[in-house]
């Protein structure tokens, strides 16, 4: 390790933060780009499952709330892309490339956003549990050694906690509603549960995760975060009279940890790596057509100027 890298690592070990204009090792830059690009793209692709329910929201208040919520997600995507743009500029990458990477399959997005949103209850579960899981992930990243990411995360976490309340509110209405509504809700939970467990990633610490921990880009392991999620949500889900679709699920007092059935790691791994989820292709195509087929708009805006006066 060269002297500069040694000093850099020493600095972040002491809790020092890195700014976009600071020198940084190539490996650190590339890890950040990989992580934040995936985060940004997940926010953007995360708008699609809910997009299907925005026009169908069943009351005026819900319509306003879900529109605001999905707008926030897009806004987070935009803020995060700006962070990646700065990091990727020395490598000659632009915003155009970062977006194109989505439909050329060069960047991955979270497994949950490959899944279908089949009913209004799914839209509620996305707001409540998917966003709930995301908050746990993101809150753990607030300590990250890369300061521009931490600043954006601070805002994201604040907004996400509103989303969770929005989702929880939809869920409560359904849980206290008619038999048909409760059934819709239970089916949504059944459908999403396994995806939610997978969301936090594999149990073992992968080599890439190892390097992120080394550079203090992240400070918690996947399993620690998954346990946190279970701590927080299992009691809440049960208090609504819902059944979690996992007969093995229990809290082990000795080990002070939740025991759960393993999600199908292979299946979800393929969904993320190979974009083979039920909605992966369709949503990538939406992103491609939005970007490619409207290039004329971005080009026109770049070459036109406001008329004088």
């Amino acid at each position: 390790m060269d002297h500069r890298t040694e000093e850099f690592v020493e600095r972040i070990r002491r809790g020092g933060k890195v700014e976009a204009t600071d020198w940084m090792p190539d490996e650190y830059r590339k890890l950040l780009i990989k992580l934040i690009h995936m985060h940004a793209v997940s926010e953007i692709m995360g708008a699609y499952p809910e997009k299907e329910w925005v026009p169908k929201a069943p009351t005026l208040r819900r319509k306003l709330a879900i529109m605001a919520k999905v707008q926030d997600e897009m806004g987070h995507g935009q803020l995060l892309l700006r962070v990646v743009e700065d990091l990727a500029a020395p490598l000659g990458k632009t915003r155009e490339d970062l977006i194109a990477d989505i439909y050329t399959g060069k960047v991955k997005f979270h497994n949950v956003f490959h899944m279908e949103a089949r009913t209004w209850a799914d839209a509620g579960v996305i707001g409540w549990l998917v966003d709930g899981a995301a908050i746990i992930n993101q809150a753990a990243l607030l300590e990250t050694s890369y300061a521009p990411y931490a600043r954006v995360l601070k805002r994201i976490c604040a907004e996400e906690s509103f989303h969770m309340q929005h989702g929880e509110n939809i869920i409560l209405a359904l849980a206290m509603g008619t038999k048909q509504q409760r059934q819709m809700l239970q089916e949504a939970l059944n459908y999403w549960w396994e995806s939610l467990l997978f969301f936090f990633g594999p149990k073992e610490v992968t080599p890439a995760a190892e390097r992120m921990l080394y550079y203090r880009i992240r400070t918690k392991t996947n399993e620690e975060l998954r346990q946190k999620f279970l701590d927080k949500y299992v009691p809440r889900i049960q208090s609504l009279g819902l059944t979690i679709p996992d007969e093995q699920l229990r809290y082990d007092r000795e080990r002070k940890a939740w025991v759960y059935s393993e999600p199908d790691w292979d299946k979800f791994g393929r969904i993320v790596r190979e974009n083979r989820g039920p909605k992966s292709r369709e949503r990538m195509e939406l992103r491609r057509s939005a970007h490619e087929e409207q290039r004329w708009v971005r080009e026109a805006m770049a070459r036109s100027h406001l008329p004088a006066g």
Partner: peptide
Amino acid sequence: EWLGLCPDIEGDVAFS
């Protein structure tokens, strides 16, 4: 209905 379909992300936020 433009959600997720605008020419750029900024346009999406504005339309929403």
